[in-house]
Design a binder for these strands. Structure first.
Length: 188
DNA sequence: TTCGTGATAGAG
DNA sequence: TCTATCACGAAG
């Protein structure tokens, strides 16, 4: 399992290196194919910029803690806390399902494999991640963790974050090159 | 392209 | 109390 030290660096490095790891969540699993980094300092898109509750979350929790919040009245967003050389979050944006597809199809109400986890709101629905999991330690429970890449030959693409209005120009979205399971195609 | 949905935070 | 905003997704 990916250990705490992994999350004791900076959010951009962690977001890049999580691509190709596998998220294990009870009976479900998926390869991480899309992430975004958010920095606690100098990043207007990060919750710490406008939310006191996010700042206290960072202060209170250890690196590797789950930061889960509700968005647009409908969707849960799943992030991992990074605290080290720089503080911030990694948003998990898309997965390639590996285990528990039957359960995911039932929860999502769709059949197409590509549509199960191809977006931050979709994957939390498929994996049943909710505010129950807020502040969960992702570095101690084998049923709620990331398994490291099996090899380091992972081709990662960096481009602009999507779905935000502020500080949108930073190339802090990371995807697995050529993956059919990303939320939106990479801009050319 | 549009629209529903509800938590959060800041202003009045 | 009120308003703005939102790291989205599904339908059209």
């Amino acid at each position: 399992m990916v250990g705490r030290r992994f999350f004791q660096r900076d959010p951009i490095t962690c977001a890049r290196e999580l691509i190709g790891s596998e998220l294990i969540w009870n009976w479900c699993g998926g390869l991480v194919v899309e992430t975004e980094a958010y920095l606690a300092e100098n990043d207007e898109a990060c919750h710490t910029f406008s939310r006191p509750s996010a700042r206290s979350f960072v202060a209170r929790n250890k690196p590797g803690a789950a930061y889960v919040y509700f968005s647009y009245g409908a969707h849960w967003m799943f992030n991992v806390l990074v605290k080290g050389q720089a503080d911030g979050f990694v948003l998990i944006r898309a997965l390639e399902p590996t285990r528990g597809l039957t359960l995911m199809r039932k929860r999502r109400g769709v059949d197409d494999e590509r549509r199960l986890c191809s977006g931050p709101g979709k994957l939390t629905q498929a994996f049943d991640i909710t505010n129950r999991d807020h502040e969960l330690d992702l570095c101690s429970d084998p049923q709620h963790c990331f398994m490291p890449r099996s090899n380091n030959d992972v081709d990662v693409v960096a481009d602009e974050r999507i779905g935000i209005s502020r500080s949108a120009h930073h190339p802090w979205r990371f995807t697995l090159r050529g993956s059919k399971f990303v939320s939106r195609a990479v801009k050319l």
